[in-house]
Design a protein around this nucleic acid. Structure first.
Length: 118
DNA sequence: TATTTGACCAAGA
DNA sequence: ATCTTGGCCAAAT
C-alpha cells in the first residue's frame, strides 16, 4: 500500500495546503511561557526558514488578538521591535510578566530568551 | 502576474 | 555605542 506515503508535509510546495505560514508562527509562539520572550529570528528558524520579516508581518496583522502572546516577541539584539497596540503597551505587558526593560531594550535577553528547536 | 512592503537580521564603517 | 547597506521571504496591493 503506497497511497499513504505521499502527503506527509510540504517540502517545497508553496500552495495553500496546510496551515498558512502565519498560523505556524502562532503555534510556535504559543510555546513561549509567561516570563520568557523569543525573537522573530527564532520563530523563523524553528519553521525552517529565514523569513524573519514575514514573521513580523504575521504579528502585525494580529489575526486573533490576545490569544497569541505576540508581545513576547522581540528583536535579536534585544530591542523591543514594534507592537500594533503601541510600543508603550508592549513594554508594560512585558514588565508585568517580570521582564526587565531599559529604554527600548530587554535587559539580559539571553536569560529570559525561550530557545526553540530548529 | 508583478511589485511593494515590512513589529527583521548580520555585517561593516 | 550608532548608522547604513544589502539580503531575506511571506502577504498584501
Amino acid at each position: 500500500m503506497k497511497i499513504f506515503l505521499l502527503k506527509r508535509k510540504n517540502v517545497r510546495m508553496k500552495s495553500k495546503a496546510g496551515p498558512a505560514f502565519s498560523e505556524k508562527c502562532y503555534r510556535i509562539l504559543s510555546q513561549v511561557p509567561k516570563g520568557k520572550v523569543t525573537t522573530y529570528a527564532q520563530i523563523a528558524r524553528a519553521l525552517g526558514t529565514r523569513a524573519f520579516r514575514a514573521v513580523g508581518q504575521a504579528m502585525r496583522r494580529n489575526p486573533h488578538a490576545p490569544k497569541v502572546p505576540c508581545h513576547r516577541v522581540v528583536r535579536s539584539d534585544g530591542d523591543l521591535g514594534g507592537y500594533s497596540g503601541g510600543l508603550a503597551k508592549k513594554k508594560l505587558l512585558l514588565r508585568s510578566e517580570g521582564i526587565q526593560i531599559k529604554g527600548n531594550k530587554v535587559v539580559n535577553l539571553s536569560a529570559c530568551l525561550k530557545r526553540l528547536s530548529i
